[in-house]
Design a protein around this nucleic acid. Structure first.
Lengths: 247, 247
DNA sequence: CGGCGTTGGCTACGGCGTTGACATTGCTGT
DNA sequence: ACAGCAATGTCAACGCCGTAGCCAACGCCG
């Protein structure tokens, strides 16, 4: 039809109908920014190439020139999230503060971008910032008095637990916003309604369960872990002091 | 082509071409079984109504008569996974064993069905079996000597941490199987290649990081948490013994 | 035995990720 | 200066996906 051709030639008159518009006006940083904005606005399921294209005023397939697949895009988002989390981090004086600070940073980043966090959890980003954080964390554990082996093990535990807890919390945040079928609130109400003769402990604890918020829970988790690490470090130091071989 | 009409009439001759085939040959249990089988075979992304239909020898839209949406199906899967995890559970004599057993059950179920676990994580299933487990866990913490408030708090921490850790591990398992772009293995190799002058602690710990397997990490996590809980319970009991008010 | 709710089949719609062909741009070496 | 070429954006199309609407067969209840 003429209309179609008209539209085509019309565009061609004002700007190139095909071929690139200018020297690479799309670039990975721009795309990642747009993607994060879309996720924050529409949730994790709202991120599609087509919407990305609209937001960037480009064809949706143009994004594929910079990220080979949606998976690549998600991996890049994971990297950006980690960079945001660790931006400006430097080890504190006290080993415990260093580790707490790292854990809180991971959680904060996940809560600030819950949609991103849930998309990329367990997608360990290979980045310099992460290497620096790992080095600082292991250094802190060594400073506490742990052996290299123990420092390695507990670093892994602490890092993975912080990531897992942050992703878990982010996942519930996403649910609350886009599928408010009372997945969490009704849950706690159900605890309160538990038959006391059948679930006596649960019934007596239910009122206290109701007023645990996520932050307090996270702090309690990290407190428990760091306390236990401290105890083991103390034991290791004691053993080290009693003659130069342990035991 | 005659073949198409032939096929139709052929089916009509042997069995009804339309309308239901027999009294409700589809039911939720059957559908859930098929869904779990598909996820285990094809991974979490392999679960679609169409494949479910093929596997059940039914039209894919027939499943919607039993589960109003895919979300409903996932929630039902979450419930089934929790039931599998807690099947046959009974509290042990020792409080620590009770809590460890619950955590290991959650992890085992998640690893046995990683695709399901990652689909439904943070989708807390409202089920009797979960209520029973919660009651047993809180009872164990009370038995250890904690106050009701502390038992509630630490129950929440332990339960959520076990679920989060299990889901996290399941997520990495799924990645390893369907996107073997070396997300985990290359990661550890990168640790080994870290420049020692820039990341001294990391470099010295890298060889030990390499031989931490997932199970050891999970056991270390639970060991740390339970140790810390034990210390706090001990403190609470001591305080209780010194005059009947704490402090 | 006649209506009617339940359940399954079919068609269709809009949206998704991804591919392949094509056009335009800007850099390259000579 | 200019041919060649890689990079980058556009377009059309493919095969999936979830789900809505309508129709047909079955079992049940009056």
């Amino acid at each position: 039809m003429a209309a179609v051709t008209d539209a085509k030639t019309n565009v061609a008159a004002t700007a190139p109908a095909r071929g690139r518009r200018s020297a690479s006006f799309l670039n990975p940083g721009l795309i990642l920014d747009a993607a994060m904005a879309i996720i924050e606005r529409d949730g994790p399921d709202g991120l599609t190439f087509r919407r990305l294209g609209i937001s960037l005023k480009a064809d949706h397939t143009a994004v594929l020139r910079h990220f080979g697949s949606k998976d690549d895009l998600l991996i890049a988002l994971a990297g950006r999230l980690m960079d945001v989390a660790l931006e400006g981090f430097a080890p504190e004086g006290e080993w415990r503060e260093t580790l707490l600070s790292l854990a809180r940073r991971v959680r904060s980043a996940a809560l600030a971008h819950p949609g991103v966090a849930v998309l990329v959890s367990a997608r360990s980003a290979r980045r310099p910032s992460v290497l620096g954080a790992a080095d600082a964390a292991i250094g802190a554990l060594r400073q506490a008095g742990l052996s290299v082996q123990d420092a390695a093990l507990y670093y892994q535990v602490l890092a993975d637990t912080a990531m897992a807890a942050a992703a878990y919390e982010a996942a519930t945040l996403n649910l609350d916003s886009d599928a408010r079928d009372g997945d969490e609130l009704a849950w706690r109400r159900e605890y309160l309604a538990a038959p006391p003769q059948r679930y006596p402990h649960l019934a007596s604890a239910a009122p206290h369960l109701a007023d645990i918020d996520n932050e307090r829970e996270f702090e309690a988790l990290m407190g428990l872990l760091l306390d236990a690490v401290e105890v083991r470090a103390q034991r290791a130091r004691d053993a080290d002091a009693n003659g130069h071989d342990g035991r």
